[in-house]
Design a protein around this nucleic acid. Structure first.
Length: 581
RNA sequence: GCCAAAUUAGUUUAAUGGUAAAACAAGGCCCUCGUAACGCUUAGCUGUAAGUUCGAUUCUUACAUUUGGCACCA
C-alpha cells in the first residue's frame, strides 16, 4: 500500500485536498469551525466542529459534489504571510484556529492559504490551484475527540484521499476492496477457524476444529523453541485474588479494564488480565541462588480483559485470549544478554515463518506523566538506556515512542499492520525493575546478600489469537503445509476403480492430516472445493496412477499436475514442512 | 464507552406497507474415468422487544450484535 505521507508530491496534493474539503464543508455548513486537517499515510482527514450537526452517510456525496464544483471553478491557491496579530484578527471567529495560533512561537512565520472565498491557516506547501484536485474520494467519516481526549467535545472527522490520476485512485480503491477479502474475520469464517455467538457473549471467540489445529500447531512450535532456550512451562489459574493485583499495582492502573471483582466467602477475586503476578509467585516459591538465574517461566496463559465494546475486532482484539507469555528472572548483569536472546528469538521466529512486514518500536515513558509511570527516574533511565544499547548492538532499526511504556517499565514492541484497520503489537519484550520489588523477590548473590532480580516480560506470538489473525491475513488464508488444518486432499477419479488404491495412499500418509474425498461427485466439482478451501496439496488418483503405482499432485495456486512416486512426494512434503512453506 | 451505519435461509445476496426471491451449501433422486460448479427435486429465512397501522421484514423507538472511525490497549 502506498504511503501518502512519505511521497512529497502526493503529500502536497492530499494536504491541498483537505483544504478543498474544508471549503466545501464551509459552503454547505457556514457555521463550521475547523480544527486540523493533516495528511496521513492513507490520505488526509479534517476535524470539523459543526455545532449540533453530525455528519451522516447521505452528507458525504453532497460534500464530494461541492468539492468537484470548487475544483472545476479552478481558483488559484495563494499563500500569505501574516503577523500573529493579523492571524488572531483574521480567525477571531474560530476558537480552534485561535488555539493553534496562540500555541505558535513568536519567531515562526505564520502563513495562510486562500482559495476563492476560503482561507485556512496553514504551513503549506500546497498545489498551485484547486484545479489540480480532481481525482479524490471521501472514504469514511466518524466522530473524533478534540485533541484526541475523550473528555473533550467530539468533532466530526472526514477522511479522504487524492491522486494525480483517475487510474491511481481506482487502483487504490481496488486495493482497499482486495484487503477486505483477506481480512481475518472473513477468512476465519470461510475456513472454519473461529466463531462467536451472541449467547456466549461478544469478544469471546470459539475456535472450531480447523482453528484448533492451527492453534495447537503454533503452540507446540513456540513451546519447542522456548524449551531449547531453557524455558520452563507452567500452568496457572485464569483468576487471582484482588490482593494479588493490588500488590502488583495492576489494580490501580487497570481495574477499569478488568472484569469486575467477584466476592466469595468474603474473599475478592478477578479474572486475570495478565499473568505476571502468578509467575512472580512461582519464582517466590523457592529460594534462588545467583547460579540459578536466569529462570525463564513460560505459559500459554488465558487472560480476560474488559475491553471497550468499540475496541473488539475478530480475534485481534477480544475479551479473552491466550498469551504466549514468559517471564525471565535475571540478574542485572544478565539483562543485556537475555534481552538480546529474546530479540533474537523473535527475529528467528519471524524469519522461519516468513514474516517480513513489521517494524520495531521502543516504547518509553512520558517523563511529565507522574501518575501513570512508577516514580523512580533512576530506574527508568537505566532501563531505557539498556534497551537502546541492546538494540543498537543488534543493529536493529526502531522508532522511539514517548508515553507508550508499561507502568512498570519500557518495552520493545513489534508492530504490524492488519488488512483492515490500525497497526497493532504482535510481539513484545519489556524490562521491569518494578514488580520484583513489589513482590519482594530475591536471589542470594555471590556475596551471600539478598538481591532483587530483574524481570523481562516477553511474548513472541503476543496472543495466539492475535497471531492467528495476523497469519491468516499474511497468507491470505492459504496456510503453509505445516499449519494447514487439512494438508492433503485425495480425490479418486472414479470411486469404483480408484478408491481402494486411494485408501492405500491415505494409509501410507498417516503422519499427515489427509482427507479422502470419496463423495460421489465429479472430479471437477471436488477439485473446485479443494481449491476454495485453500488446501495446500490435492492428490488425484486415477487409472494411470493405479496402473503405475504413482501419485499425481497439484499444489494450491498452481494449475499443473505433477506425477511422481509416493517416496518422492513424501520428500517434498518433508521439505515443505521443514521450510514452513 | 463515544459518533455513524448495518442486520433477510448454513453462506453470499435480492425484493416489498398486503406476509419473501435466487445462487451455493444441506437432504433425496439421477449421472459416473482426469483437474474450479452435471441435471432434477425437497426443506429452510426477515436479530430481539415494543409502538404506529386494518395489516410491518419494510415506518418509529429501545435493546442486542456487527462494521467504519474516535478514545482505550498492562
Amino acid at each position: 500500500m502506498i504511503n501518502i505521507k512519505e511521497d512529497a508530491k502526493l503529500n502536497k496534493l492530499n494536504h491541498s485536498c483537505a483544504h478543498l474539503l474544508a471549503q466545501a464543508v464551509k459552503h454547505l455548513y457556514p457555521e463550521a469551525k475547523f480544527w486540523v486537517g493533516p495528511v496521513i499515510e492513507e490520505g488526509f482527514y479534517y476535524d470539523i466542529d459543526l455545532g449540533d450537526k453530525v455528519i451522516s452517510e447521505e452528507d458525504i456525496p453532497l460534500i464530494e459534489r461541492e468539492m468537484k464544483k470548487i475544483s472545476k471553478d479552478g481558483k488559484r491557491i495563494v499563500r500569505h504571510e501574516i503577523s500573529k496579530e493579523e492571524a488572531l484578527e483574521m480567525f477571531k471567529d474560530d476558537p480552534y484556529k485561535i488555539d493553534l495560533i496562540n500555541r505558535m512561537d513568536e519567531e515562526n512565520v505564520i502563513s495562510c492559504y486562500t482559495q476563492g472565498d476560503f482561507t485556512d491557516l496553514c504551513r503549506g506547501p500546497h498545489v498551485e490551484s484547486v484545479k489540480e484536485l480532481k481525482h479524490f474520494k471521501l472514504l469514511k467519516f466518524s466522530g473524533a475527540y478534540f485533541k484526541g481526549d475523550a473528555n473533550n467535545k467530539m468533532l466530526q472527522r472526514i477522511y479522504g484521499i487524492c491522486f494525480e490520476t483517475e487510474e491511481e485512485l481506482n487502483n487504490y480503491l481496488q486495493e482497499l476492496e482486495d484487503a477486505k477479502m483477506r481480512d481475518h474475520r472473513k477468512l476465519g469464517k470461510d475456513l472454519g477457524i473461529f466463531m462467536t455467538n451472541d449467547l456466549v457473549g461478544k469478544g469471546l471467540p470459539m475456535y472450531l476444529p480447523n482453528g484448533y489445529i492451527l492453534w495447537e500447531t503454533l503452540e507446540n512450535y513456540i513451546k519447542g523453541k522456548e524449551k531449547k532456550l531453557g524455558y520452563l512451562h507452567v500452568l496457572t489459574p485464569p483468576l487471582g485474588s484482588v490482593e494479588l493485583y493490588k500488590t502488583s499495582g495492576h489494580w490501580d492502573h487497570y481495574k477499569d479494564n478488568m472484569f469486575p471483582k467477584m466476592e466469595v466467602e468474603g474473599e475478592e477475586f478477578v479474572l486475570r488480565p495478565m499473568n505476571c503476578p502468578h509467575h512472580m509467585m512461582i519464582y517466590a516459591n523457592n529460594i534462588h541462588s545467583y547460579r540459578d538465574l536466569p529462570i525463564k517461566i513460560g505459559e500459554i496463559a488465558r487472560d480476560c480483559r474488559f475491553e471497550a465494546s468499540g475496541a473488539l475486532k475478530g480475534i485481534e482484539r477480544v475479551r479473552t485470549f491466550c498469551q504466549n507469555d514468559a517471564h525471565l528472572f535475571v540478574t542485572p548483569e544478565q539483562i543485556e544478554s537475555e534481552f538480546s536472546e529474546v530479540v533474537n528469538l523473535i527475529l528467528d521466529v519471524y524469519k522461519e515463518l516468513h514474516i517480513t512486514n513489521y517494524h520495531f518500536e521502543l516504547s518509553l515513558r512520558d517523563k511529565e506523566d507522574k501518575v501513570k509511570y512508577y516514580p523512580d527516574d533512576e530506574m527508568w533511565n537505566k532501563a531505557e538506556d539498556t534497551l537502546r544499547k541492546v538494540l543498537d548492538d543488534l543493529k536493529i532499526d526502531y522508532i522511539e515512542k514517548i508515553g507508550e511504556a508499561a507502568f512498570y517499565g519500557p518495552k520493545l514492541d513489534v508492530q504490524v499492520k492488519p488488512a483492515v484497520g490500525n497497526e497493532y503489537t504482535l510481539s513484545t519484550c519489556q524490562l521491569d525493575f518494578c514488580l520484583p520489588m513489589k513482590f519482594n523477590l530475591t536471589y542470594i548473590d555471590k556475596d551471600g546478600e539478598k538481591k532483587t532480580p530483574v524481570v523481562l516480560h516477553r511474548a513472541v506470538f503476543g496472543s495466539l489469537d492475535r497471531f492467528i489473525a495476523y497469519y491468516l491475513e499474511e497468507t491470505k488464508g492459504a496456510l503453509p503445509l505445516w499449519l494447514s488444518p487439512v494438508q492433503i486432499n485425495i480425490i479418486p477419479v472414479n470411486n469404483e476403480y480408484h478408491l481402494t488404491y486411494a485408501k492405500e495412499i491415505k494409509a501410507k500418509l498417516s503422519d499427515y492430516r489427509v482427507k479422502l474425498d470419496d463423495r460421489e461427485e465429479k472430479l471437477g466439482y471436488k477439485m473446485r472445493e479443494s481449491v476454495m478451501n485453500k488446501i495446500p496439496i490435492t492428490l488425484i488418483i486415477g487409472q494411470k496412477e493405479v496402473d503405475e503405482l504413482l501419485i499425481s499432485y497439484r499444489l494450491y495456486g498452481k494449475s499443473e499436475t505433477i506425477t511422481t512416486t509416493l517416496d518422492e512426494f513424501i520428500k517434498l512434503l518433508e521439505e515443505k514442512i521443514r521450510t514452513k512453506n
